[in-house]
Computed example of a mutant assay.
Amino acid sequence: MTQSRRSLLALGAGVATLGATLGAPRLLRAQPAWPDRPLRLVVPFPAGSTPDILGRVLAPHYTAALGQPCVVDNRAGAGGNIGTDMVAKATDGHTFGLTINGPLATAPALYPNLPYDPARDLAPISWLARAGQVLVVNPALGVKSFADFVAKARAEPGMLTFGSVGAGSGGHLAMEDIKARTGIALEHVPYRGFPQAVLDLVAGRISAIILTVAGILPQLREGQAVALAVTSEKRLPQLPAVPTLVESGLEGATSYAWNALVAPASMPAERIERLAKETKAALASPQAKQTLDTSGFEIVGSGPAELRAMVEQEAERWGGMIRKLGITADG
């Protein structure tokens, strides 16, 4: 072998050794720990709301399981859109959010200038829980069943009124679904929240309302309101004598209020999977079950794929109704 040939081989071996030496630390270097600073759980509703109560049950579990404080950050406004938009635009890798039907499924149809796209800007983590709603009326209306209510509405077209917590809200859309299936005419009266709507129902200023059972249970127990039907697939444990809408003759008329956990679309998949795993563990705790039972919710605790599919179905169903009826966020 010539001297030049031996020199070239030695040089190549040296370069290979140097490359291996320099490359080894890169191959062995561990990924930075996550989370490495406090987590922020944005709840786009005020303190004391159902999402807020649920968020404050979940946050301590994240703190214990993930080794960093998890802080609940209430950012209410615009039906939950303000806080949800904050989650969509977060870039710190440590922000996620707990929201409801509206900001994820119906807001794109209600708000033409929505500053975020739920399908594009948000990543699903977990479908947390769902709650069937209940159709209630003022006792002075003189109806005892859903069939009675439909008959009275048909006999007095446009004379009966129903309240909701806002145009395009779950209760509003559930009643519009009933109207479409039965052909009855009811006048919609939107409110800023359910307390005033319940007060007006009890006072007889509106005829009916659809809302979660926790918002009306005291009035039902006092005889200040009459429950006619529930929107869930099965009867509610809190109202075992009240039939479902399906039992009352409206096949397919099921609907739920629900809560979900989402992250910015930029959050890495492994972090989302870890949050989904810890969320399922948190929802299995007795405290979570008691809190949700009290609020009339049942635990779901799904993974990201199930939440994505559910939101897509809800957006198609209710978004389609909003567009068909020309419902806007203003009424």
Rank of each mutant, 00 (worst) to 15 (best):
N138C: 04
V150S: 01
R130D: 03
V136Q: 01
N138F: 12
I125H: 13
F146Y: 03
L128A: 14
F146I: 05
P139I: 01
L128R: 11
R130T: 05
V143N: 00
V137P: 02
A129L: 12
A151G: 09
V134F: 00
A123L: 14
K144Q: 10
Q133E: 15
V137L: 12
R130L: 08
F149H: 06
V143R: 07
D148C: 01
R130H: 09
F149N: 00
S145L: 04
D148P: 07
L135F: 14
A131T: 11
V150K: 00
L141G: 00
Q133C: 14
L128I: 15
S126H: 14
F146K: 02
V134E: 09
A129N: 10
A123N: 15
W127P: 10
L135R: 08
V150N: 01
S126Q: 05
L128F: 12
P124I: 14
V134H: 01
V134R: 09
S126R: 10
W127K: 11
I125W: 03
V136I: 13
F146N: 00
V150T: 13
L141Q: 11
A151E: 04
I125L: 11
G132L: 05
A123F: 12
V136S: 11
D148Q: 07
V137F: 00
V150H: 01
A129M: 10
A129Q: 13
K152N: 03
V150W: 13
N138W: 02
D148Y: 04
F146P: 05
V134N: 02
L135A: 12
I125C: 08
P139M: 09
A151L: 11
A140G: 12
G132S: 13
N138L: 08
D148G: 00
L135T: 09
A129E: 00
R130I: 04
P139K: 07
V150P: 04
P124S: 07
W127M: 02
A140N: 15
A151D: 03
V136A: 11
D148N: 10
P139C: 10
L128Q: 05
G132R: 02
A151Y: 02
P124H: 14
A147Q: 12
A140M: 09
S126M: 12
L128M: 15
W127C: 08
P124Y: 14
L141R: 10
N138I: 10
G132C: 04
V150Q: 06
K144A: 15
A131V: 12
F146V: 06
